[in-house]
């Protein structure tokens, strides 16, 4: 464990908590993409199957359980409890166009052709693009509530911090995983446009408005 990975995990946890607070406090999931939340749930389930086979540390097990339960709690809030506030019209990204290619790519490019490894690789590729429906929704509505933009900033920062973690681990431990690094780089790049808007607007107290 290193400071970059810890900061990344905490940023990830913060993002998940911010999202739950936003939905619970405003009793609405307006501006949030349910499609992205479905993809995140698929990412966690397909990545954390080793919960039952490998014990790495209490921290590792605990965080995995928190991520899985919170993602299903978010789905419940969005598709059941506050279903009436879900923005069906704008949340129209076809996630099958993400799920299928990621799965095919995981079958073709992976570290070893075993079910666990292929599913882990699938979750890595899927996580890289899982935010697209959310960014698509923000671009369609043209704006985002400030807490939603804080959620996105924390979520985008987590994988950016992981990139620093991978640089650190390469030099400190000689450990690296090209699949995770490439996917993590793409995932972070997808946020760049949002990061720019967040830093130039939201941090100045303005609302996140996308140029129409």
């Amino acid at each position: 464990m290193n400071i970059f990975r810890l900061a990344g995990d905490l940023s990830h946890l913060l993002a998940i908590i911010l999202l739950l607070i936003k939905i619970w406090k405003t009793r609405s999931c307006a501006g949030i993409s349910g499609k992205s939340q479905i993809l995140f749930a698929v990412v966690y389930v397909s990545r954390y199957l080793d919960l039952v086979t490998t014990f790495i540390s209490l921290y590792n097990t605990l965080m995995k359980l928190v991520f899985i339960t919170s993602s299903f709690a978010t789905l419940y809030l969005m598709y059941v409890k506050f279903k009436a506030t879900y923005d069906h019209n704008h949340d129209s990204f076809r996630i099958e166009f993400l799920l299928l290619p990621c799965f095919v790519l995981a079958l073709l490019i992976n570290a070893s052709f075993t079910p666990l490894e292929v599913l882990w690789t699938f979750s890595i590729y899927l996580e890289a693009v899982a935010i697209l429906p959310q960014l698509f929704l923000v671009s369609k509505t043209g704006e985002a509530e400030s807490i939603t933009s804080h959620y996105l900033f924390a979520l985008g920062s987590y994988r950016a911090l992981y990139l620093l973690n991978w640089i650190y681990r390469y030099y400190a431990e000689g450990h690296y995983d090209l699949i995770a690094i490439f996917a993590g780089a793409i995932q972070t790049i997808l946020y760049c446009d949002f990061f720019y808007l967040y830093i130039t607007k939201v941090l100045k107290g303005k609302k996140l408005q996308l140029p129409a």
């Binding site: 990830h12 490998t54 590792n60 570290a111 882990w120 995983d177 699949i179």
Partner: peptide, 10 residues
């Protein structure tokens, strides 16, 4: 054993 491809990460 050596963790396969970063499995010790979240």
């Amino acid at each position: 054993q050596e963790k396969l491809s970063g499995k010790d990460e979240l």
